[in-house]
Computed example of a mutant assay.
Amino acid sequence: MGSDNDVLTRNNVTVLGKGNKTLLLANGFGCDQNMWRFLLPYMKGDYKIVLFDYVGSGNSDVSQFQQNKYRTLDGYAEDIIDVCDELSLNNVNLVGHSVSSIIGLLAAIKKPEYFVKLVMVCPTPCFLNFPPEYFGGFDEADLHELLGLMDKNYIGWAEYLAPLVIGVNNSEALTSELSSSFCSTDPVIAKSFARATFFSDYREILSQVRHPTLIFQSDNDALAAKSVGDYMHNKIQNSAIEIIQAEGHCLHMTHPEKIAPLLIKYVNDE
């Protein structure tokens, strides 16, 4: 590591508030820290909130992207650990959206002493179907087609994926914001992250989780069905699950008022 500010600049780190409990908010694929803004009004005053962008996302330093490092989710977990190191964080409540639930889990397994609780917003350990024992929601051919679309028609890919992620009946403004966020990411980096996200299988590590874990599951999520949330709840020994009456894969954006009180209660419970 170089100078003190390397990681803070590289990952575009933002620190808000001074509370004695720390919340580290980690974005999903194709998103940046701005996506957490809907949840923040519920958190003000009581917490130290740390926001960041993975290398290659948002306003991170894209020049720091290394294909080899970020080929798997472990590279992104290193970003989380680096941010914790740089800010000397411990007793962190790590709130991860979608793939960041698993990235956060990898970080917590590697450096358990940094974290106190994990919160997962619409998580999945694996998007692929392995019938009959596991249905992640997608056949391998579907995902190859999705990645192929990234090559052929990047804008079309973003416009196809964004409403699926937000939920077709939710705000069009949020859908177009997510689509723009996808499009603002360098296509080479986006495809690398997409491959690491959609083709990985982290079911095996769920049993290694030692931290108390809260799972938020949308009752209608095109990317992670309720059965996936139940699967994770069953595999993570010290876990709780909250099924939210909502559509879509981005509860922190579409239904912050539903998850915020439950999140705060979970973090505050000793």
Score class of each variant (00 low, 15 high):
Cys250Trp: 03
Gln66Ile: 14
Glu140Cys: 10
Glu113Arg: 12
Asn68Gln: 15
Cys183Tyr: 10
Glu172Pro: 12
Asp82Thr: 02
Leu147Ile: 13
Gly148Arg: 07
Glu113Lys: 11
Glu86Tyr: 05
Lys117Cys: 03
Met253Cys: 15
Ala225Pro: 00
Phe65Gln: 02
Lys235Leu: 01
Asp61Lys: 12
Phe138Val: 08
Glu145Asn: 09
Leu143Asn: 03
Lys21Arg: 15
Lys265His: 01
Glu242Leu: 07
Val228Gln: 01
Arg195Tyr: 12
Lys152Gln: 11
Pro256His: 11
Gly58Cys: 06
Leu146Glu: 06
Gly156Asn: 12
Leu251Cys: 11
Tyr266Gly: 02
Thr72Phe: 11
Tyr114Met: 06
Asp53Tyr: 06
Phe138Glu: 05
Ile264Arg: 11
Thr185Ser: 05
Glu172His: 13
Ile205Met: 09
Phe138Ile: 05
Lys69Asp: 09
Leu25Gln: 13
Asp82Met: 11
Ala141Lys: 09
Gly156Glu: 15
Glu247Val: 09
Leu262Ala: 11
Tyr47Met: 08
Asp74Pro: 00
Phe135Gln: 13
Leu206Val: 02
Ser184Lys: 15
Arg10Glu: 09
Pro125Asn: 03
Thr22Cys: 05
Asn59Lys: 14
Trp36Ile: 11
His255Ala: 15
Ile80Gly: 04
Glu204Arg: 14
Ser180Gln: 07
Asp4His: 10
Pro256Phe: 10
Gln33Cys: 07
Ala26Thr: 14
Met43Thr: 13
Arg195Trp: 04
Gly96Tyr: 08
Val99Asn: 01
Ser98Met: 08
Asn27Gly: 10
Lys265Glu: 05
Ile264Phe: 06
Asn169Gly: 13
Ile102Asn: 00
Val119Asp: 00
Val119Thr: 00
Asn170Asp: 14
Asn90Ala: 11
Ile80Asp: 00
Asp53Trp: 01
Asn169Leu: 10
Ser239Gly: 09
Ser3Trp: 06
Ala173Leu: 06
Asn268Ala: 13
Phe135Trp: 06
His211Gly: 06
Ala141Cys: 05
Gly96Asp: 09
Tyr202Gln: 12
Ile259Tyr: 05
Asn27Tyr: 07
Cys250Asn: 10
Glu257Leu: 01
Gly136Gln: 01
Val13His: 04
Arg71Trp: 07
Ala260Ser: 13
Gly45Ala: 02
Glu177Leu: 09
Ala158Glu: 04
Glu270Tyr: 05
Asn153Met: 02
Val50Asn: 08
Asn90Tyr: 04
His252Phe: 15
Leu262Trp: 08
Ser179Asn: 05
Val7Ala: 03
Lys152Trp: 03
Gly148Ser: 12
Trp157Tyr: 15
Thr254Asp: 11
Leu106Tyr: 03
Ser63Trp: 08
Ala196Leu: 01
Leu23Thr: 13
Val99Arg: 01
Asn93Ile: 00
Phe216Arg: 04
Arg210Leu: 08
Leu147Gly: 13
Gly28Lys: 14
Phe193Leu: 10
Gln237Tyr: 04
Cys126Lys: 00
Cys84Trp: 04
Lys152Ala: 11
Ser98Gly: 09
Ala162Trp: 07
Ser179Arg: 10
Ala26Cys: 14
Tyr154Phe: 15
Thr185Ala: 11
Ser3Tyr: 08
Glu172Ser: 15
Ile103Phe: 10
Ser63Thr: 15
Tyr114Arg: 04
Leu24His: 09
Asn11Thr: 05
Asp61Ile: 09
Asn91Phe: 00
Ser57Phe: 13
